[in-house]
């Protein structure tokens, strides 16, 4: 049973993550915006592992996700901070697999990542210090938070339970 769970976990992590990032399926979008997949995958791993392991995983995940984007803006700083926070939280709380608890953490994490990307874009491209860009960024942030909040309780809590069984 443990072996089966482990295989499922490996399959989900290795096959589905790149598949969802590359295909960005329309049925998993809200207003054309996909869930924040790094959050969905990193959250259960960080809650279950020590800070240094979570930190390394966040950097590796960030490197991987950045391969599929087109600008200099990176996921790594925000993912690293989140992995440390979640890992600390996971070490001191036992009821973290609660459905809504995971969703709330994913929502806050997604908002943090979105703010980080927003900030990095403003710093890198001075032309984006503009109301038109800010209103659009707010729209993306809210949509991304909503869709991640809806998807994370299913995927992340399942992943967390599988980690615990292993």
């Amino acid at each position: 049973m443990v072996k089966k769970n482990k295989k499922l976990l490996i399959f989900f992590t290795i096959i589905f993550l790149p598949a969802f990032i590359v295909t960005s399926p329309d049925w998993l979008k809200i207003n054309g915006i996909t869930p924040c997949w790094p959050v969905i995958l990193l959250l259960p791993f960080s809650l279950h592992n020590s800070p240094w392991k979570a930190g390394i995983a966040s950097i590796l995940l960030g490197i991987f996700i950045d391969s599929f984007t087109i600008s200099n803006v990176s996921y790594i700083p925000s993912l690293f901070v989140l992995s440390l926070i979640w890992s600390q939280y996971g070490l001191h709380n036992k009821k973290i697999e609660l459905f809504l608890n995971i969703g709330l953490m994913a929502i806050l994490g997604t908002a943090f990542i979105a703010l980080s990307i927003w900030l990095q874009k403003i710093i890198l491209y001075s032309v984006l210090r503009d109301n038109w860009f800010h209103s659009w960024s707010l729209y993306v942030l809210i949509s991304e938070v909503i869709i991640t909040g809806l998807v994370a309780p299913f995927f992340s809590s399942w992943l967390l339970l599988t980690y615990k069984k292993n």
């Binding site: 032309v127 038109w132 860009f133």
Partner: peptide, 30 residues
């Protein structure tokens, strides 16, 4: 795409500008 810039012009006025992506379907022509 936010920050993407290409050169463009308005043919009627022959005025050049830089079309800058703002995220929405309506880029800004500076």
């Amino acid at each position: 795409d936010p920050g993407h810039q290409v050169g463009a012009w308005i043919d009627r006025t022959k005025r050049h500008g830089i079309l800058t992506g703002m995220g929405t379907n309506r880029p800004k022509l500076i």
